[in-house]
Structures are given as structure tokens and as C-alpha cells.
């Protein structure tokens, strides 16, 4: 048991806890956008911590681990953005209790030919 093994193990454990919490969030949260929030953030940090932790345990792999972690860090938010946008475009409803939907107001304004800045009505719960 060297110091690097212990530190790496702690980092891997930290990452797996967040991966678990991300999974729990996907089960518990009410609609697709909230689930994406939990999914994206927790899986990104979880995966990055797990991979870098493995790199710390085996210092020979650290460079490759950092490259993989950077790749995940750059691509994960883009995939979440694509999923959220695709769900919105295919009219997946926002959950009950949603307080504001500026994007719908913006779309209506665009059809009416004015700009988003004039939109000030509060939105309902469905897009």
C-alpha cells in the first residue's frame, strides 16, 4: 500500500459515488431535462474522477488517462445539449411546476415577427 494507491483509490471511490448519485437522479427527477442535468453533471465528474484515479494508481497510464478525461469533458456537455434540444424540438413536455419557458415565448415572437426582448408573458407548464 503506497501513498499513490491510497490517493488513487479515494479518487476512484469519489467518482463512483457520484456515478451512483447520477443514476439515482435519473430515477427520481420528474422530466427529461432535469434528468439530463443529473445525468450530465454526475457522469462527467464521476467518469473523469474514476479515470484519473486509475491514472494515479498506475502512473504509467496517467497521460492517456488525462487525454481520455479531457475527451469526456469536452464531448459530454455537447451530447447533453443535443439531447435536450432534440427533446424540445420533438415537443417533449416540461414537468409540472415549471415556472418559466422563455424558449417557447421566443419561438412565438419569431413567428409573429418581433424580437425576444418584448416577450414578457409568463408561460404555462407545457411547451
Amino acid at each position: 500500500m503506497t501513498a499513490t494507491t491510497i490517493i488513487g483509490g479515494v479518487v476512484v471511490g469519489f467518482g463512483t459515488i457520484f456515478l451512483f448519485l447520477g443514476g439515482l437522479g435519473i430515477l427520481r427527477l420528474p422530466d427529461v431535462y432535469n434528468r439530463l442535468q443529473a445525468g450530465t453533471k454526475c457522469t462527467t465528474l464521476g467518469a473523469v474522477c474514476t479515470i484519473v484515479g486509475v491514472g494515479i494508481i498506475e502512473p504509467g497510464w496517467l497521460c492517456k488517462a488525462v487525454v481520455v478525461a479531457l475527451f469526456i469533458l469536452l464531448t459530454n456537455p455537447i451530447s447533453a445539449h443535443a439531447l435536450a434540444r432534440a427533446s424540445y424540438k420533438s415537443a417533449v413536455p416540461l414537468c409540472e411546476g415549471t415556472v418559466v419557458d422563455k424558449y417557447r415565448e421566443f419561438g412565438e415572437c419569431e413567428e409573429a415577427g418581433s424580437t425576444a426582448e418584448t416577450a414578457d408573458a409568463t408561460a404555462g407548464s407545457e411547451p
Binding site: 448519485l21 437522479g25 420528474p30 422530466d31 454526475c42 465528474l45 415549471t98 419557458d101 425576444a116
Partner: peptide, 24 residues
């Protein structure tokens, strides 16, 4: 890191203190 603790808090909290919406 703060984002993850934030999500963890919202998920684990029994009443789920969320107030979602889309802002510009």
C-alpha cells in the same frame, strides 16, 4: 464540483427542492 454536490443534494433530499424552467 459544486454542481455535483448541488445535484446530489437535490436528488437525495426527500422533497426534491427543484423549481425548473427555461430562461434566456
Amino acid at each position: 464540483l459544486k454542481a455535483n454536490f448541488d445535484v446530489a443534494y437535490r436528488v437525495v433530499h426527500p422533497r426534491m427542492p427543484i423549481r425548473p424552467g427555461i430562461v434566456a
